[in-house]
Design a protein around this nucleic acid. Sequence first.
DNA 1: AAAATAATTGTACGATGTACAATTTATTTG
DNA 2: CAAATAAATTGTACATCGTACAATTATTTT
Lengths: 245, 245
Amino acid sequence: MPEAEQRKRRGRPKRDEVVALDRAQIVAEALRLIDERGLEGFSLRELARALGVFPTALYWHMPGGRNAVLGAVAATAFTDVVPPAEDAVDDWESWVRALFTRYRDSLRKHPNIAPLLGAQIVSNTGVDMELVERILAALESAGFGGERLVDAYNTVVAGLLGYVTLELAPGPAEDASEWASAFEAEIRGVDASRFPRLSRNLDALANRAFIVRWQGGAEKPMTHSFDFYVETIITGLRALSRKIG
Amino acid sequence: MPEAEQRKRRGRPKRDEVVALDRAQIVAEALRLIDERGLEGFSLRELARALGVFPTALYWHMPGGRNAVLGAVAATAFTDVVPPAEDAVDDWESWVRALFTRYRDSLRKHPNIAPLLGAQIVSNTGVDMELVERILAALESAGFGGERLVDAYNTVVAGLLGYVTLELAPGPAEDASEWASAFEAEIRGVDASRFPRLSRNLDALANRAFIVRWQGGAEKPMTHSFDFYVETIITGLRALSRKIG
DNA sequence: AAAATAATTGTACGATGTACAATTTATTTG
DNA sequence: CAAATAAATTGTACATCGTACAATTATTTT
């Protein structure tokens, strides 16, 4: 733990004192703590403790308090997800594919913040607007325009966040392994007469499909289905772009 | 407020006393409170207050505490979403379409619980297994089997939750209208040279598309795009089901 | 030199989740 | 039918949390 040394004096610190409190550093440390102990276990006070600072000092740099910190942390997930331009130009499909996988790769490095993204209108105008612009570019080159462009755009954004948010969703908080084995037993012993298809495909589905899994995507990735999901969306968009344009 | 009258006596209540504490009632009241004051404002103590009961009494019926209550509340969103059988049989596409719209309609009645669903491995074996079974049935009748069935299933489930979770996501907690107008101004004044396409389509996009909206889906539904999104997924699945089977 | 502003320490408060003991009623058992 | 056990609550207690606000000190501007 990178505890900063104590500093008893009150008031504004001298120029070269070790406080080094700074918006970027607060966000970075917050992300580190969330990576380490999860979203549920995150608190402003622990963040302050880790930074060697009083909790209320954080409010100077982040006037929004807790929510502001979490918002800023969430925003970091979008850095570097927008694929470089050269991949796009005349192949919107592979650009969209690249976007999806880059976003997923980015979140897989910090799976604990996934709930923040799928469930918050977080926006940090700048990075985000770049993302919007580039999605629009891809979809225009796919032939969408006007009202359909809006629909296609919303489809891409929802698709972008949807799968990954769910894949990386956290299970029950503390009783993890106990709950997991109990749930596994329940799944394994599912009534074959009431649920014949589930029962027949159980080996293929158990712990490898939503609702019937007992591990989160951080421990047990669902990559193959993700690729299929992306192809589904791209294929659907391609078909619909031809239908009316 | 349906405050229950006071009852001073300690210990187990007599048979016909008005305490009426019961798992189902706890969950129902919790949902009502969340509908009313939002997820952020929900607390076990207020729930207990609303039920006219000590906070710790809730632990008797819900051993998991807060998380257990929220899990149970989340599960209610899935009641009655599975479309009746007769709609399906030999038309898997309209069955899936019905599933998507029913789920969305269900959540739109309780938009505040949306974050719970997109972000938690909540499962209540029974209702859920029925859902799983029926999705599998639809996809088998669409021609999916084996490994592809798993992928298609995961695609449907992720698609089912993804859009709605994002659409109904809550904005910033308290400073709502202030933030909204500030954000609107920022969007309206976006740099046309850096973001030409966004700028060109601004009227169509502003407050009607993800990332560039300042109202949640509870206040401003995004229905048209949702329909397009559903068609995208169904069309994609149809095409991919023919490709290999 | 004085005033304003920046950046922190410190204090304080109400609220929260939950562990645990005490108490009372209902049910089961011998 | 008495005694034991289980069911369902009240009541107490505690650590923790977010944040409003005052006090303090250093830097920058006037």
